[in-house]
């Protein structure tokens, strides 16, 4: 680590001779330190799930939430610096409200993603600012468009996904998700798999405690983005705990 950068990493407005913008890569490191965040798109619903690492027992359970509502049927999950994330959420809400005011309908997630990623990208261009240390997962569901899922990275690049992950165990979560067939997945399967993946990728040795957080948008939630909705939340936690116990007993053998 000590040899990298070598003077080219002090500003987001300068390339290094080999064509990298170090500030963006450092922002990526901030994301890698964060608890794992996943989003998965099923047949008729979409789920966001978060491994919220508990840094102190003194926090309330719902403190420092990483899943936010942006509009009726749009949710955002944040991996990385929470304060940066909240700011991005605020921007997203403004964009959604602005769209609503102009067109009297909910902003399509594709357009919201474009707006927010343009904003994130702008923060990678100037020496006066630093890039956002967040990876943003946006999810929506509606009758016409069905489930939609996008991820924006600190560089400002964004893509649509069937399933995506960010944070500590991004790779591990992606490996797990590649085993699944999302296109025909029901809401029940979706939340159970979300629970499984988050509980499986949680590293008990490095972070003892975590709080499972998830949100769902589907017909069953009346098309609304709902944080920790019942009964799905319990289903996810049960599936997660079961998967974890299975893993633990494998290790014992």
């Amino acid at each position: 680590m000590s040899s990298i950068g070598t003077g080219y990493d002090l500003s987001a407005s300068q390339f290094s001779p080999d064509g990298r913008v170090y500030q963006i890569e450092y922002a990526g490191k901030a994301v890698e330190m964060s608890g794992t965040v996943i989003g998965m798109r099923g047949k008729d619903g979409i789920v966001l799930a978060v491994e919220k690492i508990v840094t102190s027992q003194l926090y309330e359970d719902d403190a420092a939430t990483r899943i936010f509502t942006v509009d009726k049927n749009i949710g955002i999950a944040i991996a990385g610096l929470l304060a940066d994330g909240r700011y991005i959420v605020d921007i997203a809400r403004q964009e959604a409200a602005n769209f609503r005011q102009q067109f009297e309908r909910t902003i399509p997630l594709k357009q919201l993603t474009e707006r927010v990623s343009a904003y994130v990208h702008a923060y990678t261009l100037y020496s006066a600012v630093r890039p956002f240390g967040v990876s943003v997962i946006l999810a929506s569901w509606d009758e016409e468009q069905g489930p939609q899922l996008y991820k924006i990275e600190p560089s400002g690049t964004s893509f649509g996904y069937f399933a995506c992950a960010s944070g500590k165990a991004e790779q591990q979560a992606k490996t797990e998700m590649e085993k699944l067939k999302f296109a025909e997945m029901s809401v029940e399967d979706l939340v159970q798999n979300a629970g499984k993946i988050i509980y499986q990728v949680h590293d008990e040795l490095r972070n003892k405690d975590f709080h499972f957080e998830m949100s769902l948008i589907s017909k069953e939630t009346k098309g609304l983005h709902r944080l920790n909705p019942q009964p799905w939340y319990d289903q996810a936690v049960q599936a997660g705990l079961a998967a974890k116990n299975e893993d633990d007993s494998d290790n014992e053998i």
Binding site: T65, F68, T69, V70, D71, K72, R93, A96, A97, R100, Q101, E104, L224, H225, L227
Partner: peptide, 15 residues
């Protein structure tokens, strides 16, 4: 009503 609806969306954002 546009203003009222926006208030309701903001209510929801508080989760």
């Amino acid at each position: 009503k546009r203003s009222i609806d926006q208030k309701m969306v903001e209510d929801m954002c508080y989760q």
